[in-house]
Design a protein around this nucleic acid. Structure first.
Lengths: 197, 197
DNA sequence: ACCAAATGTGTACACTTGTACATATTAGTG
DNA sequence: CACTAATATGTACAAGTGTACACATTTGGT
């Protein structure tokens, strides 16, 4: 008998990666079996062998993005000690070094877009967003985390809609500062913050 | 000769409306000549007669949404007298009576999504957003308007991603209040606001 | 009534899509 | 070396697409 060792190990992974690349620069609707096959350099049959249904392939590919988000966006937040650190991390995530490229934002928007009508992808989406919220919740009250998350997404979305106009760092910072210090009785930092930064 | 009077006047408009309806509950990719034709009760030939290219039809249909946005969202803002009024209008636009339904939000997201890769639709998008910004700019400094716009879109987007969880009005209000009162030297309201509301 | 031009419509074509499936190739076990 | 099952692949098909276009119908002016 034969135990399941693939003839070309890593082919599955290569297909997934190729799928994401195709989606990244053509949108989800550009992800066809044949297109991805060509891009990955595998025959059509390989596609349907590893991923019997196209929807499954797409969901799997999108799911791999979850791990990309963590180091970029969540990690700096985790290390924030003061509210000023939190604001710094948020500004960075919006327009700074750890912020997503326009292609990435487009990708996220693709996921959101598709998730609005496809339950499986909605799950991926919810998971990503929950990760972010949990992270934020460590340094800020629950509802505030919601607002911050909304604003962050709004800024990203704005960048995508206005690719040529750079966002002014000052306003981004001020906006996050305003949200971070929203009234919230009995939460960490909030009482002795003034003398920290 | 004949001067151009259609045999069935209003057919063009009916096609546009049907297109928007199809898009509204199936997404842009659901808008096919045949599908819309069936929905509008016109033969396929009529479609290509009035709209020789599908892309043109879609752009035209999406363009009609611009006029819908004005009374809903912009009008209440125009009548705002104090900053408190502005906040009220924004809260209403986010989760209140003048706020878009989930279907509408999905539609906006469709437009944004498609606009990210299609220049013609990007124009429509930019126009809509500029309208909103101009309106906001009447009551709030320029950069602040950007932030508010971003947050508003973020809230809408959040609603779409979490259809079952209602947003808490208090946090929405507080968040907008925080942004609206951002430091902005020499702008209307800002000096004597405290005693207004 | 006649005609030209605008409006309206059915059919056909070339193309792409997801997916099924018969067939070929490989790898490990006995 | 066989034998079997997993892995790999090319082809075929039905369904759907945008669009072109020949044809029919209506309209208004003469």
């Amino acid at each position: 008998m034969r135990r399941g060792k693939p003839n070309d190990p890593g082919r599955r992974a290569r297909i997934l990666q190729a799928t994401l690349e195709v989606i990244r620069d053509g949108g989800i609707e550009a992800a066809s079996y044949r297109g991805v096959a060509a891009h990955a350099g595998v025959p059509l049959g390989s596609m349907t062998y590893y991923f019997p249904t196209l929807e499954g392939l797409i969901v799997s590919a999108l799911d791999t993005t979850r791990s990309d988000l963590e180091p970029r966006y969540a990690a700096p937040l985790r290390e924030a000690r003061t509210l000023a650190d939190v604001v710094d991390a948020l500004v960075e995530a919006t327009i700074g070094a750890t912020s997503p490229t326009l292609d990435d934002i487009r990708l996220y928007e693709d996921i959101r877009h598709h998730g609005a009508r496809n339950p499986e992808i909605a799950d991926v989406l919810q998971a990503v967003e929950d990760d972010a919220l949990v992270m934020l919740h460590r340094v800020v009250p629950n509802n505030t985390a919601l607002a911050i998350n909304a604003l962050l997404w709004g800024w990203w979305s704005h960048r995508l809609a206005h690719p040529d106009t750079a966002l002014d760092e000052l306003i981004v910072r001020q906006a996050f500062e305003a949200l971070v210090t929203l009234p919230a009785p009995g939460h960490p930092f909030h009482e002795q913050e003034q003398n920290h930064a």
